[in-house]
Design a protein around this nucleic acid. Structure first.
Length: 805
RNA sequence: GCCGCAGUGGUGGAAUAGGCAGACACAAGGGACUUAAAAUCCCUCGGUAGCAAUAUCGUGCCGGUUCAAGUCCGGCCUGCGGCACCA
């Protein structure tokens, strides 16, 4: 009766229908309950959509479609994170303006996304490279600048010695330039910084208010890296105070030397007292030449130089100890100086061995650890020794007592430190948001007036960064030279641009009100839509992007733009899709699957279903060209149910419990990202229906609604032709908990934990009767004959177990 | 080194208040239909022994708790992801 399932025609038909009817447009009726579903907006690369993209998009599409049927006003938007290096590099190579490349790539991406039947509200599309968008990115930067959160600082950057170009950290692979393989060294440049460290404690604390996966929370906690300890003031023989940071102030009596970072300013200060300044200078230069890679990779091999002429004095016992410079101490953490306790720190121990420095045990462990050979670092079990008034105390108690002593004697104080560092916000690149600042010799750094935003990217001849590492904008005199907004005198524009992270740090706010010309979004829209109810994205973005956007959102909350502390209520992550060979897909491996081909050969519904069925949503999964056939087969079998529909306004009794159970399972599994088992449940249901030989109208209707979020085109088509209505205007199906159970249940009868028999009993049947019946079972009585039953275990509706001896 | 996650058939994976291991698929083998192929439908499908009923072993390894362990506890091994001289 029905034609073969022509997915190409059906999918086109419904995509057109949804477009024309604005089916998925988010409503402006703010009295309805809202649901804001967010997926990470893609970078529109020249390669087009990757087969991995549909996985998270389909997942949130399923949630969104279900929520619409449940009556929510759903916001499910999409946009483009379009600034970035690949486009710029392509532009350099092919001498095409990056804006043109971007436009072309976006058109291609959009076409591919539409082909998948994703229910995005395309009216709210945003594009980070659109001046109407980045106007507000610049505006946010200016607000931060006004609050003192954006500042300029001399910073070491990655410098490729062969391309003569500044590289982003991501472009440095194994200490070499990703593009040319040349050596990368550190070079000091003046950079714009954002003071994310000022928000470190709040970024940590407020994690308790959001529902992120534990692993996501823990990477955030790790990255922020809070530690508690003390700052201790050592005096130097030069007469000044050298402050160190330590998390083990209890070991102060064991400090036998000090180490300062090679960049420590005291070297200069002490220059005329240092007898081996040449040797020290040489070491400093060597350290500066080392890339970050070398400095961290050679982590076993310590090196350093002792300062001759200046020594430190331990405040607790007045002992004079030597001071070294070494690159294992970082200028960017703590105070750039440490007290070294080789007996109780592995790094200090290595260093002490190298330089033959004394090792004094001040914490005694339970075992026979010889601190001359190995550092003893366990805080839980140690007891203080050789430490005067701390002797006999536990590590924890000693920490408290020494901190009190330091404060009473003015020699130090408790201190909390974070690993998190301020955000290097400048890039010496063309394809990014211009930083809206001018420099005036008289007034310093001055904000571009808000009325002049957006400060648009000017056209340049070449997008190549310049030889001295400046942005291509630095070659444009007409752009650079301007007047100071403050005094009217001559001034120069900032030529660095913002990093790609900028545009993505607030895009979820713009979706709430994307066409607003007067504000980044209206207060009313933000109040209604924010926070994002559910944000899904890749694990690779769970540190930086998540942290940066939480930081911006908190700042915007502080200046009353938004009303919530946190931007995202819930954050989940999906796994990557690998090639058939289990390797990451790449052109060089030849294992790339193109979504266009899959849609052509199987249809979008099958692709969607397969990507949800492929495995645990949160784990990586290899693509399997044969498994996808099983999903197509399932859809074909659902399609052919149309050949045999019988009347009926209720589920038939033999199927009723299965229907209620499946509705429950699918409804719950969608909410907990277990799409694979939701699909398996529908497959099982179909197997039961098929065994009956027919489906009735009530059953068929329920099946179509359940399947709709997964395979929206096909189910719409079948709904229209069989029920004459639009599926998207229906309600999500309901289940009755009490009808999920059958009248009878099969239970297992065990003897000593081994299954001997099975029996069918009525649900919640009488315990004694069941035990008695089980005991009489032939197999059971055989197994217990000659033994005495010492225990009977009865688990209702599950099993009976006799323990016999 | 630290943090997190995982290890189950030929394959992807099911199974969590501890209670039938292998749901649902894929692949493979056999059969039906067909001139044939594709498609579709039916059967088998963890190992070992057996014609079979059945027995027995089996969730990375070793031990423990329990009537009962993939699941809980202790100790390892392996793989993946992230961070990494952060004092």
């Amino acid at each position: 009766m029905n034609e073969k399932y022509d997915y190409t025609a059906i999918e086109k038909k419904w995509q057109k229908y949804w477009d024309e009817h604005n089916t998925f447009r988010a409503g402006t009726d703010y009295s309805k309950p809202k649901f804001y579903a967010l997926v990470e907006f893609p970078y529109p690369s020249g390669q087009g959509l990757h087969i991995g993209h549909p996985r998270p998009y389909t997942a949130m599409d399923i949630v969104s479609r279900k929520r619409r049927l449940e009556g929510y006003n759903v916001l499910f938007p999409m946009g483009w994170d379009a600034f970035g290096l690949p486009t710029e590099n392509y532009a350099i190579k092919n001498k095409i303006h990056p804006a043109i490349v971007t436009e072309k790539n976006i058109a291609h991406f959009k076409e591919q996304l539409k082909m998948l039947g994703l229910s995005f509200d395309w009216e709210r599309e945003v594009n980070t490279t659109d001046p109407d968008y980045y106007k507000w990115t610049q505006w946010i930067f200016l607000q931060m600048f006004k609050k003192g959160l954006a500042y300029k600082k001399e910073m070491a950057v990655n410098w490729c010695t062969s391309c003569k170009v500044v590289l982003a950290n991501e472009e440095v692979v194994g200490g070499c330039c990703e593009r040319c393989g040349g050596e990368v060294v550190r070079k000091v440049k003046s950079q714009w910084m954002l003071k994310i460290t000022e928000y470190a404690q709040r970024l940590l604390d407020d994690l308790s208010e959001v529902n992120y996966l534990d692993k996501i929370k823990s990477t955030q906690v790790n990255w922020i890296g809070r530690s508690t300890g003390a700052e201790v003031d050592f005096t130097s023989t030069a007469g000044d105070i050298l402050t160190v940071y330590t998390t083990r102030p209890d070991t102060l009596f064991g400090a036998t030397y000090m180490v300062i970072a090679p960049e420590h300013p005291y070297i200069e200060k002490w220059a005329d007292k240092l007898e081996n300044l040449d040797e020290i200078k040489e070491y400093q230069e060597k350290a500066a030449r080392k890339s970050d890679f070398d400095r961290t990779e050679m982590n076993k091999e310590k090196s350093g130089v002792m300062l001759k002429g200046v020594r430190g004095i331990n405040p607790v016992n007045g002992k004079e100890i030597p001071i070294f410079i070494s690159d294992y101490v970082l200028m960017s953490y703590g105070t750039g100086a440490i007290m070294a306790v080789p007996a109780h720190d592995e790094r200090d121990h290595d260093f002490a061995e190298l330089f033959n420095l004394p090792i004094i045990e001040v914490v005694k462990g339970k075992g026979d650890i010889d601190v001359q050979k190995e550092a003893f670092t366990d805080c839980a079990t140690g007891v203080l020794v050789n430490s005067d008034f701390l002797n006999g105390l536990s590590v924890e108690d000693a920490k408290v007592k020494i901190k009190e002593w330091l404060e009473e004697n003015g020699k130090g104080k408790s201190k909390v430190n974070f690993k998190l560092r301020d955000w290097v916000f400048s890039r010496q690149r063309y394809w990014g948001e211009p930083i809206p600042i001018v420099h005036c010799d008289k007034c310093g750094y001055v904000a571009v007036p808000e009325s002049e935003l957006p400060l648009t990217l000017p056209d340049v001849e070449s997008y190549m960064p310049t030889d001295n590492g400046e942005s291509p904008l630095a070659t444009l005199d007409s752009f650079i030279n301007t007047t100071c907004p403050h005094c009217g005198g001559p001034a120069k524009r900032e030529t660095d641009t913002m990093p790609q992270w900028a545009g993505s740090s607030w895009y979820f706010l713009r979706y709430c009100d994307p066409k607003n010309e007067n504000e980044l979004a209206s207060k009313e829209a933000l109040d209604y839509w924010m926070p994002v109810d559910w944000y899904n994205g890749g694990m690779e973005h769970t540190t930086l992007h998540l942290l940066y956007s939480r930081f911006w959102h908190k700042f915007l909350n502080d200046i009353d733009v938004t009303t919530t502390k946190e931007p995202y209520m819930k954050r989940t992550s999906h796994g990557m899709i690998l090639g058939e060979d289990g390797q990451k897909m790449s052109k060089s491996r030849g294992n790339v699957i193109n979504p266009d081909d899959v849609v052509r050969d199987y249809g979008a519904d099958t692709l969607r279903l397969y990507e949800m069925f492929i495995g645990d949503f949160e784990k990586t999964a290899p693509w399997s060209p044969s498994s996808i056939k099983g999903c197509k087969r399932f859809l074909d079998r659902v399609w052919s149910l149309q050949d045999n529909i019988i009347d009926g306004s209720e589920y038939r009794s033999q199927l009723a419990a299965s229907f209620h159970k499946t509705i429950k399972k699918v409804s719950e599994d969608i909410e907990s990202l277990k799409f694979n088992t939701a699909i398996a449940a529908m497959m099982s249901l179909l197997n039961e229906i098929t065994a009956e030989g027919s489906v009735n109208r009530a059953e068929f209707r329920t099946l179509l609604i359940l399947l709709n979020p997964f395979a929206p085109h096909m189910t719409e088509e079948m709904f229209e032709s069989n029920f004459g209505e639009i599926l998207n205007e229906q309600e999500w199906v309901k289940y009755d908990e009490s009808l999920c159970v059958e009248n009878t249940v099969e239970i297992v009868v065990q003897v000593n934990g081994k299954i001997k028999s099975r029996m069918t009993v009525s649900v919640d049947g009488n315990k004694d009767e069941i035990l008695e019946a089980a005991m009489k079972d032939e197999k059971v009585s055989e197994a217990i004959s000659g033994k005495s039953v010492i225990k009977q275990i009865y688990v209702p509706n599950k099993l009976v177990n006799f323990v016999a001896k």
